[in-house]
Amino acid sequence: MSHRTLAGTGLVVGYDRARPVLDGAALTVPAGRRLAVLGANGSGKTTLLRCLSGALRPLAGTVTVDGVPLRHSRAGLRAHRQEVQLVLQDPDDQLFSASVAQDVSFGPLNLGLPEETVRARVAEALALLAVDHLAARPTHQLSYGERKRVAIAGAVAMRPCVLLLDEPTAGLDPSAVAETLAALARLEEHDSTVVMSTHDVDLALRWADEVAVVVDRAVVQGAPLDVLGDDVLLARARLERPWALAVGARLRELGLLPGGTLPRDAASLLAALPDRPGVPT
């Protein structure tokens, strides 16, 4: 397991060549960088992730890992899945076993690993996602948030170099979102590059190193402050400007925020504001 660079170029993806979901999309996930894939519902975020994971074969274009193109043969896909894992939005699409630990063991066993190694990987994945206390619980008694994290653990146990998460925070309350983000940070330390799709621009701003917006069947990628500050692009993508950028820009105009990058969330905005009234920095 080590960070790898996953990329797609000239991707035409869809079921109907005349009206593809993505048409000439390009995306690079630099090794070790957090990438947020943003887009409105139905824009093609999930299709893009499925294509990058190998689940969907593009009509045209190439997916590469560290520059090596993915071949859609049995062996090629097998190799790709050991490097790139996709976690779907609905955890019930991935959890098939009655017990949590057994479900997580499914992937490593399919890799043909010996039982001892599988056991160790299951324990590691459950610990990384902070769901080790659920190991002996039946899947059907878990809450939605717990099921989501167990589903991620199932992919993590495959020790992917790149982990693609489709809407990992959708439907979670703030504390569950915080726990998920903490788990993702642990995964990065474990040398997995993490990509998440979301339509929460505020979350993307505060989490991501890079942002890719899926808009008009293509992808616009760049630094979060640039992309999420581009009102024209956001309007085309049916997204909103993150409040922190809107408010931060105005406060800087008012001389209340120092130069450099704008704060990305409430805590850092408050920290950057002056302590006393009337003393613009």
């Binding site: 994971s53 190998g54 689940a55 097998r78 899945r81 894992q85 996709l86 779907l88 609905d90 019930d92 699409d93 991935q94 098939f96 076993s97 017990s99 630990a101 057994q102 479900d103 063991s105 499914f106 992937g107 066993l109 399919n110 890799l111 039982e115 599988v118 056991r119 299951v122 199932g154 992919a155 495959m158």
Partner: peptide, 24 residues
């Protein structure tokens, strides 16, 4: 629908022949 979606979810985790899991 569930069966179809589970199939795709599990294919991504390398489902080849069966649903083998670690015995408890």
């Amino acid at each position: 629908d569930r069966a179809r979606r589970l199939q795709e979810g599990l294919a991504g985790r390398g489902m080849d022949t069966g649903l083998r899991v670690l015995p408890e």
